[in-house]
Amino acid sequence: MARWEVFKKDNARKPYQAVGSVHAVDPEHALHNAKNVFVRRPAAVSLWVAPAAAIFSRSAEELENQPLDPTANGHEQRYLVFRKASNRRSMTFMDHIGETSAPNGESALAQAIDQFDDKPGLAWWVIPAEAITASEEDVAEAWFAPAATKTYKQQSQYGFVSKLREGRKGAVTSDE
C-alpha cells in the first residue's frame, strides 16, 4: 500500500504541519487512517494527505552536497512549500509556509528557497497542489469535535495523582 504524508492544522491560526504518515490505497482511505492515527486528541480543524511519491524532498545537508539544478521540464503548476526551520523539541516536522509555481519539483524548491528566505531551512518539501487532498469541510464537526469531549483521555484531568502529598490529590472517581 502507498505511503501518504499527513498534515494537521490545529486551529485557524496554525499552519498545516507534517505529523507523520499512514499507508492507504487512495486519498479517502488515507484521510480516514490519518484521523484515527493522528486525531485521537483535540486540536485539529483540518487534515491534508499527499502520496509520499509526489513529494520533492531535500535536507539542508543534501542541498549543500548536491546543489539544485532547476530546469524547465514539465508543466507549470502550483506547488505547496513546507519547511523545517528549527531543531527545537517538537512533535511536528515541517510547517506549510506558502506556495510557488514551477514546472517541476526541483525548480519549485529552488524558487521556494529564494522566496522564503526569512529563516534558513533545515529540511524542505514541495508538493504539487493537485497531489494534496483535504478533509471535507462538512465533516469537520463530526471528525474533529468529539475528541474535545473525551476528557478522560487528557492527562490533565487526573490532576496530581499521589499518595505522598494527599492534599494535592487530583480527580478521584467514586464509581467503583
Binding site: 486528541r41 523539541r89 483521555k153 492527562q155 487526573y158 480527580a171
Partner: peptide, 20 residues
C-alpha cells in the same frame, strides 16, 4: 524524537489512570 514527543504526551494519561 518526534514520534516520542507525540507518544509521551499521550502516554502520561496511561500512566496516571493506572496509578489512580
Amino acid at each position: 524524537s518526534r514520534a516520542m514527543v507525540r507518544i509521551c504526551a499521550e502516554e502520561t494519561f496511561h500512566h496516571k489512570q493506572g496509578k489512580e
